[in-house]
Design a binder for these strands. Structure first.
Length: 207
DNA sequence: CGAATGATCGGCT
DNA sequence: GCCGATCATTCGA
């Protein structure tokens, strides 16, 4: 079943980041349907989170979708090349978001392989935020998509039956040199022992 | 294996 | 002009 909009409106973005693990992201573009289970996420909580684009409620053409009511996508370009997919949460005006960092392919593997130029399934197909978006055909035009509408090109489903559980591990977020202490907050979550998550980054300290 | 590098967009100073 | 919520490739041990 598709996740209702109410799922995204909670104010606790850390809790939503954990609850999104195990959910299924579906893209249906030009008759090509692909789906993947979310296995790794990161929470971004403006205004106090320096690592967020919306730190201090910074409002630009890029960040404005993060201020929308929860349940829509926030897709932006990173390093000029990569299109990263986020889920906007909380009520309108609160710029919380969850970055999806890796998915486990479930459906449309042939399409994913073709889009990535791979000849067979292996974790590198989808184990990074800029990798699975290519595999699933997601790019910056998919900013602001309603993820609770099955008629759209992008939506999120819950395939779980309730009692099938998994363990969640948490660690520091990565790739942010200017975010200071915020970068060390354990706001990165993954399904324990899942082979489709990205490699744990080594955090270097200067002293 | 690890380190270095280029790709090149949006937003800041 | 500089830098980043990254990745693929190259080069060297």
């Amino acid at each position: 079943m598709i996740l209702p909009r109410s799922f995204y409106l909670d104010h606790d973005v850390l809790d939503i980041s954990k609850k999104l693990l195990g959910k299924v992201l579906v893209s249906d573009l030009g008759g090509q349907r692909t789906a993947g289970m979310i296995v790794e996420t990161e929470a971004y909580r403006a205004p106090e989170d320096k690592a967020s684009h919306a730190y201090n409620n910074r409002l630009t053409t890029r960040t404005k979708t993060m201020f929308a009511m929860g349940g829509v996508s926030y897709v932006y370009i990173c390093y000029g090349i990569h299109h990263l997919f986020n889920v906007v949460t909380a009520e309108e005006g609160v710029a919380h978001a969850v970055l999806v960092r890796a998915v486990e392919p479930l459906e449309g593997m042939d399409t994913m392989l073709k889009r990535r130029g791979f000849d067979r399934l292996r974790p590198e197909l989808t184990n990074g935020p800029g990798k699975f978006t290519v595999a699933m055909g997601i790019y910056k035009d998919h900013d602001g998509i309603a993820l609770y509408e099955a008629s759209g090109p992008l939506f999120i489903e819950d395939h779980r039956k309730g009692e099938d559980r998994f363990e969640i591990t948490s660690g520091p977020r990565v790739g942010m040199t200017s975010a200071e202490e915020c970068a060390h907050w354990p706001w990165r979550f993954r399904i324990k022992d899942n082979r489709w998550t990205s490699k744990p980054n080594v955090v270097k300290y200067d002293w």
